[in-house]
């Protein structure tokens, strides 16, 4: 229990630090947020009036304390560029991003670990080299570049997959999805709108592939290295000497001990994907948090930037906490560290 409290209190400190730094940075940048709010041809008088309305005329510490107080009460401010409540913007867009991250991470985990294991089995052979090249490419290719490349090839040239969007635009007129949970793909399944489900899955392929590339590369390299390390340890040799089957040695003994670092990397990768979606969503015009984040950054929409930073920070902390819990379940010694 003490460990849990320690983790939670350090998480709180991280949140305060992240929010304060972002808040201060957004205000010290020489910029006039009123321009984002009322357009580039706003008059000086309009801009001055708006600065008072938005509280920008007050000292930064006062602004920060007000911001924290309002945030705790569910008021995350209004986006300067969309004029909508930031919290509402996030709530509306988050489900699409979570669905994208879920598919990307599932793909990365299943194929990353499987190919890592396969590479370990064929260490030093052609298969290993091919998988290593794929992994390095996945880790080193910038997501926006890979996204454009896949888009040009599979949507532009081959026309196998749609170039952008979460669903065909016509779908909302022909087969509209009834909102139940707010997660569009999930809602299409539970309401039996399978035309929409298939269409959504079709749209999901390219963005999910793009987003998963980094995690896929990381996981496959990690799985390969860990398995090789574990399989060469003494207890595996002893197990072999006792004549245990290779299947038993692999699944019951080796894989279990190779898992904790993979779980850690999976958690960190998932957290990384929260910000990784920024570029991918922009390229694929995905209606999630990413496009909103990029536009907010470009227009120095500081209430939106603050909201997204808070969301990302909370996302990181929650995922790390979950990873800790899973690791502790796999290896109870973790509580002692």
């Amino acid at each position: 229990m003490k460990v849990v409290w320690n983790r939670l209190s350090s998480a709180l400190l991280v949140l305060i630090a992240a929010s304060f730094i972002t808040f201060t940075l957004a205000r010290v940048i020489p910029n006039d947020p009123s321009l984002a709010y009322i357009g580039p041809k706003a008059t000086a008088a309009d801009a001055a009036k708006l600065r008072i309305t938005l509280g920008l005329d007050q000292p930064i510490p006062v602004q920060y304390i007000k911001y924290v107080w309002q945030t705790l009460h569910g008021n995350w401010g209004y986006s300067l560029s969309t004029k909508q409540p930031v919290l509402q913007e996030i709530i509306d867009r988050l489900p699409s991003t979570i669905e994208l991250i879920f598919f990307a991470m599932s793909f990365a985990f299943i194929f990353g670990v499987a190919l890592g294991v396969y590479a370990a089995k064929y260490r030093g052979r052609v298969q290993d080299s091919v998988i290593r090249i794929l992994a390095i490419a996945g880790v080193s290719m910038p997501a926006f570049w890979l996204g454009l490349l896949l888009q040009l090839l599979f949507a532009g040239r081959l026309a196998w997959f749609p170039a952008t969007g979460q669903f065909d635009i016509d779908l909302k007129y022909e087969h509209p999805i009834s909102k139940v949970t707010g997660f569009p793909l999930f809602d299409s399944i539970i309401t039996g709108n399978f035309t929409a489900t298939l269409n959504g899955l079709h749209h999901m392929v390219l963005p999910a592939l793009t987003l998963s590339a980094y995690s896929f590369g990381l996981l496959s390299r990690m799985a390969r290295a860990n398995l090789l390390e574990v399989m060469s340890s003494d207890y595996i040799k002893v197990a072999r000497a006792y004549g245990l089957s290779e299947r038993l040695i692999f699944f019951k003994l080796a894989l279990k001990n190779a898992l904790p670092p993979i779980v850690t990397v999976t958690g960190l990768s998932t957290a990384y994907l929260i910000t990784g979606t920024f570029f991918v969503e922009q390229v694929y015009a995905w209606p999630g948090i990413g496009g909103f984040a990029v536009n907010s950054l470009l227009s120095i929409d500081y209430p939106a930037i603050m909201g997204i930073t808070l969301l990302a920070a909370v996302g990181y902390l929650v995922i790390n906490f979950i990873v800790d819990l899973i690791q502790a379940k796999i290896d109870p010694r973790m509580w002692l560290r």
Partner: peptide
């Protein structure tokens, strides 16, 4: 559809999405 990126917009038109 509000699409700030011109290349993405081009892809949408050539692929028939818009």
């Amino acid at each position: 559809s509000i699409v700030p990126d011109a290349i993405t917009a081009q892809q949408m038109m050539t692929s028939g999405q818009v």
